[in-house]
Design a protein around this nucleic acid. Structure first.
Lengths: 185, 185
DNA sequence: GTCTATAAACGGATAGAC
DNA sequence: GTCTATCCGTTTATAGAC
């Protein structure tokens, strides 16, 4: 089989496992059974589990951020927030997943500095994007940041991450929409 | 040594380990070294790791909820929220901890139904308390729930939980205060 | 590249002496 | 109650054949 296909399958399933069970909650064996290769083959592509985690978070980050940047920049701010909320809803998947970076933020004490920095970058990128949308929404009188857009964006992003945890815990999706409603004017 | 002292020391350090590393991120060996007993002694008090997790979350929940219910009920709503925020700040400890129930919400796919229910109860209790404070704050014109207090309370609590994750990730405490500021009028 | 085989440490858990 | 000793499956990781 093509080298890149196996590598991408590993990276893809690793992301799912991280989003479902967390860094300490899955093993190379779990991943090997999902992909259909032996654990030694995983080590060929990703020498250590930390390497795998770092590449997984980078792939996830690139994927999610490209979806966010694909949101029509000429749309009204409240519509952009709608689209953003739908992206978050997709993360939940079958109902057993949370954001990979939210999960790694919980597991951060088990992870090397490189992964922490990658997760921090993802947080910053989301918060910066939200800050712009909030500022725009205030100008258009459709969103209510209620203070400095940067601080409001950090709180809003925390609420999105926290709501993913709660959505999975209570097996519902409504809590995610309530977050977006909270800043709607 | 007195039986209850060892049992309580185990329960206490188990809570710290859960808040720092998560359910899959610590072992009986880690706990035994912290408390100064052998792992077999831990099994004497807590036959399985799931038993330990369940008792730890119940002890944590009773402890935190008693602190919340100790908040002066005759104080103005915005002062109650201040006190509540300070309780959350204490959870961070030395800077490497998050809420035990927020952590177990992340680890929920590794845990039995009993633990899920205990975590759900903790969430509900916090959300109910916050809903009352928000309703009161709206009447006193000091807080801005911006809609139904119940929905606003769920979003606010998600923001608190999410902000703990972010506070630890970025090694700061300011993000927690920003959450309370977001609902202040 | 992928496999088999294996190392070496760690995981939760138990039996039985004291 | 706490210990030593041990079981046995799992974990990450490596060596080397194909």
């Amino acid at each position: 089989m093509d080298k890149n296909t196996v590598r991408e399958a590993l990276l893809d399933h690793a992301q799912t496992l991280l989003m479902t069970r967390g860094y300490n909650g899955f093993s190379y064996r779990d991943l090997s059974e999902l992909v259909g290769v032996k654990t030694s083959s995983i080590h060929y592509y990703f020498p250590t589990k930390e390497d795998l985690a770092l590449e997984a978070v980078n792939a996830y980050s690139a994927d999610v951020m490209s979806s966010i940047y694909a949101i029509d920049s000429s749309a009204p701010a409240d519509k952009k927030l709608d689209r953003y909320t739908k992206l978050f809803a997709r993360i939940i998947g079958g109902g057993d997943q949370i954001c990979l970076c939210g999960m790694l933020a919980a597991d951060i004490e088990s992870l090397p500095e490189k992964v922490r920095h990658a997760v921090q970058s993802f947080y910053k990128a989301n918060e910066n994007w939200l800050a712009k949308v909030l500022a725009e929404g205030e100008a258009q009188d459709t969103l209510d940041a209620g203070g400095k857009p940067e601080a409001a964006a950090r709180t809003l992003y925390a609420a999105f991450q926290g709501s993913l945890l709660a959505c999975r815990l209570f097996q519902t999706r409504t809590r995610l929409e309530e977050v977006a409603d909270a800043v709607r004017r």
